[in-house]
Nucleic acid binder design. Structure first.
Length: 280
DNA sequence: CAAAAGGGCCGCCACT
DNA sequence: TGAGTGGCGGCCCTTT
């Protein structure tokens, strides 16, 4: 991977020529510059970027999307950028189909991501595409980040792959999220995805980087954490609603994931709440 | 804590 | 010939 960073204002003509031979060009986020305020870009930069699209994959992180948009690369294409810049981005680049709800957008040779953290998600996605989920997972571990985040309903938009012979497990994940409180086993999920169990597990791991059961546990933990933080439901109700069945199972999972018990977790987020029973 | 049972995961391989 | 599929078996972890 060849990355060109900090070349937006090349000192004296050097730098941009690197784009001619790059495989992948990553435009990082900017905090200032004309492109953010009035959407203009040096003509030589724009020209170099446009020329590079013939042979290189071009991606942006955070406000880097302004650079791609200013060069006209994103016209009539879906894209993502930092949520704080949604308004000005739309004003400056009305032709870009900006999606404010996704972590990143994979439109084939053009990839854009939301804020810095989503930039990591995008980079891991690219590594997964190029080198498989094993390498991507190792990279994620090295960076101390989750190999995969769901990020709301629409985790990311993939370019509608031509003759998508490959059905995705994505719809089944959405389906599973709707019924987290019910028993869900591999057979049921595979049936929903209309695949054999073997193919389902293989695809699932390829697409998310984790196994179906691990993914389910992670989602259930998130649900339980939410309920502990935002409701006064008793712990066994939380366990049931999150799909753990018993409070004991929730205890074990939560402890394995973040090292604390449900009640401790709740207390750190709702210190002054709860029934008077626990007064001193 | 022990033991048994039940799932899940994944390498392997034959088969489209 | 090559990629995708899915059944099998063994190991592992979780639950009872």
């Amino acid at each position: 991977v060849t990355t060109t960073a900090g070349l937006l204002q090349p000192p004296s003509g050097d730098g941009l020529e690197a784009l001619e031979s790059a495989d992948t060009i990553v435009v990082p986020s900017l905090r200032s510059g004309a492109v953010l305020t009035d959407g203009t870009l040096g003509p030589d930069v724009a020209k170099a970027l446009i020329a590079a699209t013939g042979h290189a994959r071009v991606m942006s992180i955070c406000t880097g999307a302004f650079v791609l948009a200013a060069a006209g690369l994103l016209d009539d294409r879906p894209a993502a950028t930092h949520w704080g810049y949604t308004g000005s981005f739309r004003r400056l680049f009305p032709r870009v189909r900006l999606d404010p709800d996704v972590l990143f957008v994979d439109d084939g040779e053009l990839l854009t991501s939301a804020g810095g953290g989503a930039g990591i998600d995008l980079c891991l996605h690219v590594v997964r595409r190029d080198h498989g989920s094993k390498v991507a997972n190792r990279a994620a571990r090295a960076c101390v980040v989750a190999p995969w985040r769901e990020g709301g309903q629409s985790q990311f938009i993939e370019r509608p792959v031509p003759q998508a012979s490959t059905a995705s497990t994505g719809p089944t994940r959405a389906w599973a999220l709707e019924r987290l409180d019910q028993p869900l086993d591999l057979a049921a999920m595979a049936r929903h995805a209309r695949m054999s169990v073997r193919t389902f597990t293989r695809r699932f791991r390829g697409e998310t980087g984790v196994s179906p059961a691990q993914w389910l546990i992670q989602r259930r933990i998130e649900r339980a954490e939410y309920l502990l933080e935002n409701t006064d439901l008793p712990v066994d109700r939380v366990a049931a609603d999150a799909g753990f069945g018993t409070a004991a199972a929730l205890r074990v999972r939560l402890h394995a994931a973040i090292g604390v018990s449900p009640s401790t977790y709740r207390r750190t987020f709702r210190p002054s709440e709860g029934p008077a029973a626990d007064s001193r």
